[in-house]
């Protein structure tokens, strides 16, 4: 966010000194050095490959291999599936929580907010093992169901649903906070005005609240998608051996298979998907800043 100079700082008046630009120079340079340059260097390393004689030449063979290799494609697909399902479930869970926190005025709201923020302070590795204890085979849920003579459920542990449940829990705080800040833009007066002319709860949500927070929704989705796409610990511990998500897949290719070029190719492809949501985010921030 700091990388985008707002109009009032840089100014359009010629009399302004470039103080604003200088202020943002440090973060911009840092971003270029630590983020932009590694991306460029990664792309170059995957298309400018050494041939058998050691000469470097332009080639797309690592990408051709990725997209012709069913195993890699399955991993990409399960990553996209996990990301989509997790983002959807997150919105379905977090929007009601955020709405409740925005409009509730009683004491309980403070506890609900505390509870919603709590996952932020739990490291994902601890969450993973707790998940196996609670939702895993013969875990707490199983024992409780058993105690009341309900049938045994198939545990999501080591199936694609394992990472989904873990990631949803892990991402609730961020999503709730972003939506909550968006809901701050919805004035009580506009809701009361809508109620006065006879709008029901659904109508207020659909015509008054959602249009105001569409920006926050976009930001929340972009953030969670970026986080989920690159998730590592939860898919690693809770997910199935195959197909695996891109995070564990990249790590395994890089370390266990000792194949940095292929790992970087996978990273560039993952980056290609993430940049779409990154652009969404930049777009929505820029739109917000427009006068």
């Amino acid at each position: 966010m700091t990388a985008l100079p707002a109009n009032d700082i840089v100014g359009t008046k010629s009399s302004r000194r470039p103080t604003g630009l200088l202020l943002v120079a440090a973060p911009v340079l840092l971003v270029c050095w630590l983020i932009i340059w590694p991306i460029i260097s990664a792309i170059i390393r995957t298309v400018w490959l050494p041939d058998t004689a050691g000469e470097r030449r332009f080639s797309l063979e690592t990408y051709q291999f990725f997209f012709s290799d069913q195993y890699s494609i399955n991993n990409l697909m399960v990553t996209l599936w996990t990301t989509a399902v997790t983002a959807l479930i997150l919105l379905l869970i977090c929007l009601p929580i955020a709405l409740y926190l925005r409009f509730a005025t009683n004491r309980i709201a403070a506890y609900v907010q505390g509870l919603a923020i709590f996952p932020m302070f739990v490291p994902s590795i601890i969450l993973s093992y707790a998940f196996i204890r609670v939702l895993g085979p013969n875990g707490t849920v199983d024992l409780l169901l058993n105690a009341v003579h309900l049938p045994h459920i198939r545990s999501p542990y080591l199936t694609p649903w394992g990472p989904v449940l873990g990631l949803v829990w892990d991402n609730i705080p961020l999503t709730v906070l972003i939506l909550l800040s968006g809901l701050g833009n919805v004035s009580n007066q506009s809701i009361e005005a809508a109620r006065d002319v006879g709008a029901g709860r659904i109508a207020v949500l659909w015509h008054i609240i959602l249009p105001r927070i569409s920006n926050s929704l976009l930001v929340a989705v972009s953030f969670t998608v970026l986080g989920i796409f690159s998730a590592f610990t939860l898919p690693y511990v809770l997910g199935p051996a195959a197909p695996e998500m891109m995070g564990p897949f990249m790590q395994r290719t890089f370390r266990d298979l000792n194949d940095p070029t292929t790992a970087i190719t996978q990273a560039v492809i993952a980056f290609g998907f993430c940049i779409v949501f990154g652009l969404f985010y930049v777009y929505s921030v820029a739109k917000n800043r427009a006068p």
Binding site: G136, P137, N138, A241
Partner: peptide
Amino acid sequence: LFDNGAYTSGNTQSVQLLSQSA
């Protein structure tokens, strides 16, 4: 195998499944 072909992601997780009697 367990759950029709599941594989844990480490030594510790296997021990955990044995300890949970799964």
